[in-house]
Design a protein around this nucleic acid. Structure first.
Length: 928
RNA sequence: GGGCGGGUAGUUCAGUUGGCUAGAACGACUCGUUUACACCGAGUAGGUCACAGGUUCGAGUCCUGUCCCGCCCACCA
């Protein structure tokens, strides 16, 4: 059979991927004869390129999809991308800036055209990369969150939630990114600890004795703040009612420095007396706690900042300054007025935009929110009751904790790229009020998928759509069902209800999906919210299992990220080592749920393995005789002990012809198959990969192939080789799809299956697992290793055959060894082998004892005994003098105290080493 | 402040419900090109499993405490 000497991954990958696509092997459809197995891809962001995190994530998923497909499931992997509102808009804006344009110059419509153009051009880069990884997604189904179909689902969900009062609009403190100029959800604000300052500022007590307001310089309250610039928006100072220091403030007011605004003193138990001075400045428009205090004490918020975090009119003379600039200036002014006390270093954590890493400004703003509490109840239960299981289990707690402390979700974004909020305002009916924090649902708000022609209340045609778009996650959270075409029931333009039969059938069949494979970073953003939406809109969980894999880091433990420049590009690795090498390597080093530390070197594991497999296959292919193996393998029978079982393996070869080695490798194969399958089912993917690696390399190649060479032309060997290789390829296929396909296609076969990827998963044949055979073979291996070991210690020339005498006590052992003499001869380079219960130790022989077996190799004539004796004696002498030197050094106190520690350590180590070596040499000497 | 993960050969890590004589890969060392493979083969050396107690016939594994490293959550003004 033809097979190239060298394995060429690039060629193989290109060829077989095209073949799989051409044969349409990735497609899945409703098939009542098969059970479904389905999975959705965590939609990569269209601005992204494949990084190692994706490579890990998608390799895992592809393994499961391929594994289940082979197990006979109708296996669907639904691919797609999300529109990544903020990220994409940022990318396109940057591009425009390079051309000297801003998005406002273009206007909304033109800008969006620009984004779509960008998306068409670059948005599918990551899809092509996933193909190079070997992902067997049902590509014609590829979805995008901004597809018409998908968008319809998003609007539908918005409207349904709005109608159930689960979506509302209101003024709340939100996370504002001054650079992206949009609101963010709590999850999008990443908290990072920074070294800030805590500033102490005097707030004078106002006196009103004579009716006029004056400032009493002696009376003041000191407040501590980390953001002094927000004091311009202060409306009160709060203290704890139990705090004795501030009892005297009852009924008094304070004066806000600089702006001279009068501030109430309020008493609230939320204030922690032990922090700072125990007095808290209250800025409802710029701080979440203050905002709540403001509501509780009916205070009017004062917003002092613009969208870009510069100060607005309310900031008086500071208007136009940047927030940090203002901070500096304000402190100077306070110092001038003797109202500044001190600034002390203070560590605290501050939110940063997850897209551009700008420091977030908490800010009062009118936004749309989803009421999460009522929605979260079922999502919590589903996990508590075990309907959804996390692997590893520990994430259950993280999920439940988040669900129990869930807060409303801010879903409006002040950007242009995304699903525009399906809300229209009648200018006449709608009164823009900032103080009304309640939903104004009846006054001029029309929620609709399309623009209404006129206001249903006043018939006015002056109608405007809300300018904001929805959070990208507000579409992603619908992924498991919106990708199938939900909602199934649609209302046509003329008001008729229609049902999308195809979508209905597919949802019935494929939903809920089986497993979600994702990274820990995304549990709150996506996993938790999908559970919520699935239970809400499909009345069922979106997936049964959630497998959370680790984060990919570099070898110093830092998370791989583009901005840090410590990434390893998976495509580079594929170019250099091959896709299979990448897949195998990354899987084999990723323990369940543990973070992965990568360096380019680690991909050699997979490359070497692919090479090994290729060469082993070459050996087999070059020697297989087509007519001997091209029979249905399930005809051979193998006798098991006394029971003559009908074992599904065989043909015309008599049972007895199968040797110990044949039976052994079959036994080992089925054991490996069982372990592999079980590990995959428990999401212990690295165990699975390493198990098959161990089998192929260290059992099949190291032992069986060496033995098989002795009888390569005999039918029993031919059949065993073929069977084990062919089945191993199938088992390995989910992990290394390309190389296994290429080799498999070269195997002689008469069945009509087009590809290894659609062959059946090898069925478990426990009958072949034979502990007795394993044990017997292990004995043989031990003996061979012992002989090799003796050869090495006695420096016996590689080519030279030796005579070996083996003394055994057990008759069974005797028989076992005697029937396999030829293996020992070949694998240990033995000339005459004498196994018996009555062996006497020959003169001048090397000795080894394993179990209760003694092995002797007479050295006379093999090595020059006198010379060897001399050599050993000389060596012992040399070592002994070295030992003396080292010991002398170690006794020298000067050396111990002055030499570097590692030198001392090395000396100590050397001492022990030399001692051990001397002992072993002496032992050898005594044998001569 | 709360929660989670980790500390095992020189290095990077496995080690499932306690049974281990603690494994692998890379690196080191000694041999070796016998026609599948030097991206290889044979062999060797390397470990008080962070520390201190406890439970047990038996602990890397379970319990308690301590010390490091990393991550996540939180309204630390």
């Amino acid at each position: 059979m033809e097979i190239p000497t060298k394995y060429n991954p690039k060629e193989v990958e290109k060829r077989w991927y095209a073949f799989w696509e051409k044969e349409n092997l990735f497609a899945a459809k409703v098939n009542p004869k098969k059970k479904p197995y389905s999975m959705v891809i965590p939609p990569p962001n269209i601005t992204g390129i494949l990084h190692m995190g994706h490579a890990l994530n998608n390799t895992i998923q592809d393994i499961y999809i391929r594994f289940k497909r082979m197990q006979g499931f109708e296996s669907l992997w639904m691919p797609g991308t999300d529109h990544a509102g903020i990220a994409t808009q940022n990318v396109v804006e940057k591009m425009l800036i390079e051309k000297g344009k801003k998005r406002y110059d273009l206007g909304r419509d033109k800008f969006l055209e620009e984004v779509w153009r960008w998306k068409e051009k670059y948005g599918s880069a990551i899809i092509d990369q996933l193909k190079r990884l070997g992902c067997s997604c049902d590509w014609p189904r590829t979805r995008f969150t901004m597809d018409e179909m998908f968008s319809d689902a998003v609007l539908e969900v918005f409207i349904r939630l709005y109608n159930e009062d689960l979506i509302y609009r209101g003024d709340y403190i939100i996370n504002w990114c001054p650079r992206c100029q949009t609101a963010l959800s709590d999850e999008e604000a990443q908290h990072r600890e920074i070294d800030g300052m805590l500033y102490y500022v005097k707030y004078p007590v106002a006196t009103t004795d004579d009716g006029r307001r004056t400032t009493d310089d002696k009376g003041f309250v000191v407040v501590a703040t980390t953001r002094p610039e927000t004091m311009l928006g202060d409306v009160a100072v709060a203290v704890n009612p139990k705090d004795k220091r501030y009892k005297g403030l009852k009924g008094k007011t304070l004066v806000l420095p600089i702006l001279q605004r009068e501030l109430k003193v309020i008493f609230d138990s939320k204030v922690d007396p032990s922090f700072g001075t125990g007095a808290l400045k209250v800025t409802p428009a710029h701080d979440p706690v203050d905002f709540e205090l403001g509501i509780a004490h009916k205070l009017e918020p004062v917003n002092v900042m613009n969208n870009d975090a510069t100060m607005n009119e309310a900031a008086g003379d500071y208007k136009g300054m940047d927030r940090l600039e203002c901070r500096e200036a304000l402190i100077e002014d306070l110092k001038e007025r003797d109202l500044f006390i001190k600034a002390e270093p203070h560590k605290h954590s501050v939110g940063h935009c997850y897209r551009c890493h700008t420091m977030i400004e908490p800010r009062l703003s009118k936004q749309w929110f989803v009421r999460m509490k009522p929605l979260s109840v079922k999502a919590r239960e589903a996990v508590e009751k075990g309907k959804i299981k996390f692997y590893p289990k520990r994430w259950t707690k993280v999920y439940l904790n988040w669900m129990s402390n869930i807060r409303d979700w801010c879903i409006s974004r002040q950007i242009w790229w995304g699903h525009r909020i399906p809300v229209y305002y009648c200018k006449k009916c709608y009164e823009q009020t900032t103080d009304d924090r309640r939903q104004t649902r009846d006054t001029g708000i029309i929620v609709s998928k399309t623009k209404p022609e006129k206001c249903p209340h006043c018939n006015s045609t002056e109608i405007e759509q809300d300018p904001d778009v929805l959070d990208t996650w507000f579409s992603s959270w619908l992924w498991p069902f919106a990708t199938f075409g939900w909602p199934v029931e649609k209302t046509t333009d003329d008001g008729r209800r229609t049902t999308d039969e195809k979508a209905k059938a597919e949802l019935d069949y494929f939903y809920p999906t089986d497993v979600l494979v994702t990274a820990q970073e995304i549990i709150f953003f996506w996993v938790a919210r999908m559970v919520i939406s699935g239970l809400k809109f499909m009345k069922d969980i979106p997936f049964g299992d959630v497998y959370i894999h680790g984060t990919v880091r570099d070898d110093t433990g830092t998370k791989m990220s583009k901005s840090l420049g410590n990434t390893i590009d998976p495509i580079d690795i594929i170019d250099k080592f091959g896709s299979d090498a990448l897949r195998f390597s990354i899987i084999s080093i990723t323990a369940q749920g543990q973070d992965v530390f990568l360096s380019p070197q680690k991909f050699e594991i997979g490359r070497n393995f692919a090479n090994k497999l290729w060469n082993a296959s070459r050996l087999v292919l070059m020697n297989l005789k087509e007519d001997m193996v091209k029979k249905d393998l399930c005809q051979i029978r193998l006798r098991q002990g006394r029971k003559s079982q009908e074992v599904c393996f065989g043909g015309q070869v008599a049972n007895e012809k199968f040797t110990l080695a044949d039976r052994w490798i079959l036994s080992r194969f089925y054991e490996a198959l069982g372990d592999f399958t079980k590990s995959l089912e428990l999401y212990r993917i690295n165990d699975a990969a390493n198990r098959i690696y161990e089998f192929i390399w260290h059992e099949f190649c190291d032992w069986y192939l060496e033995i098989a060479k002795l009888t390569i032309d005999e039918p029993h060997t031919q059949i065993t080789l073929y069977k084990v290789l062919e089945k191993s390829l199938r088992v390995l296929h989910p992990v290394m799809p390309f190389i296994t396909e290429d080799i498999w296609q070269r195997l002689p076969r008469e069945h009509t299956t087009v590809s290894v990827m659609v062959t059946k998963w090898p069925h478990m044949q426990k009958e072949f697992i034979d502990k007795k055979v394993d044990k017997e073979m292990q004995l043989l291996i031990d003996v061979i290793q012992a002989v090799r070991n003796l050869r090495a210690t006695w420096r016996i020339e590689h080519q030279k055959e030796v005579d070996v005498f083996i003394k055994v006590k057990n008759k069974k052992v005797l028989a076992a060894l005697n029937t396999n003499v030829k293996y020992i001869n070949k694998l240990a380079r033995v000339g005459n082998l004498d196994v018996s219960t009555r062996i006497k130790k020959p003169k001048h022989s090397a000795v080894s004892v394993i179990h209760d077996i003694e092995i002797f190799i007479p050295l006379e004539g093999i090595i020059d005994i006198d010379k060897e004796k001399k050599r050993l004696e000389e060596k012992v002498n040399n070592l002994q003098s070295e030992l003396k030197r080292v010991e002398g050094r170690l006794k020298n106190k000067g050396f111990i105290s002055k030499a570097p520690k590692d030198v001392v350590q090395k000396a100590k180590g050397r001492k022990e080493l030399v001692k051990v070596e001397i002992n072993s040499l002496k032992k050898n000497l005594s044998a001569l």
